[in-house]
Amino acid sequence: MSDELQPVADTEPIKDPGLAEHQFRPQDVDEAQAKRTERQIAWMFRVAGLLFLGFCFAYFLIDIDDTFLGWSAQNFAFGMTLGGGLLLVGVGIIQWAKKLMGDHEMVEMRHPSASSDEDRVAVMKDINAGIEESGFGRRPMIRNSLLGSMALLGLPAVVLLRDLGPLPHGQRETVWKKGMRLVNDVTGTPIKPSDMQVGQLVNGQPAVVYETDADGEPVLHGTELLQVKSKASIIVVRMRPEDVTPSKGRENWGVDGILCFSKICTHVGCPISLWEQQTHHLLCPCHQSTFDLGDNGKVIFGPAHRPLPQLPLGVDDEGYLIAMSDFPEIVAPSYPELARDQKKLDNKS
């Protein structure tokens, strides 16, 4: 161990005066004071005991629906009795330790964390004896084959995890397809262009979300439904046609200024819905990525990189809004194969 930075003793400006004289507490010198403290502490424990009993009474006497000052009466009574009792027990014990228990400071010497040099030498000797007697060093064949098999044991451990889930698939598609109606997210009713006012935003879903089979049971439910919603949720907005500047190829994706975008943020997938009518900006409440819906869903602020995918719209024979295809761009947060998948989508269309 290097001692180069060890301060030299006689350069110390002040000598260690040693431990301060013991200060007696009132309880040490005055028996009456000690008795008083003892009584105080005993009362804390007694009241705590009563509070614990009170907890039990509350459990059986207070109804689960009762309220107290707007709180659940039970929660209040349980918490106050339990918490108050515990606090009194704790404070009582600490008071006991501080005021009545012996308070003579003790000095204990430290020992170096390191073992003695002899012990270190002895341990090295033992380890070497172990290596020597096992022949670990002398018999490389047996050693290496063991190490090899141990390394291979890692493989079953990894392979065993294979069935944690399926391989990635279907990330580039949603349930949207040509002809599927847009429906209101809350009521499930299809949307007509005439239902929408300029400046309005409607949260929507693909019609399949509300579809039922012959028995009246929903086609999608449980996890499947959540998975569909987490990719196919949309927002439908109506802007004045002159406020919309569609990029090339998107001129006919809207119907009378009605445009449809994915509701799922391209950043980490929060559903976006904070709509600024005047600026036609859409703000994600999670990380404040902001998209300009008048400008093809372009990102104008925040951590998102990709524009909000747009769904090409049309109108069916009954005059309801429908999708003309699936999203031409990939919805939901980015993933490593996104660039490749996007190329495949581009080639398809």
Binding site: W71, G83, I93, I94
Partner: peptide
Amino acid sequence: PVYAAKAGGFFFVVFGFTALMGAL
């Protein structure tokens, strides 16, 4: 006894404190 009592007592203080928070 001093640290066993102080530390042990402090457990009840922490528990009691969180219980009061849970109540209020």
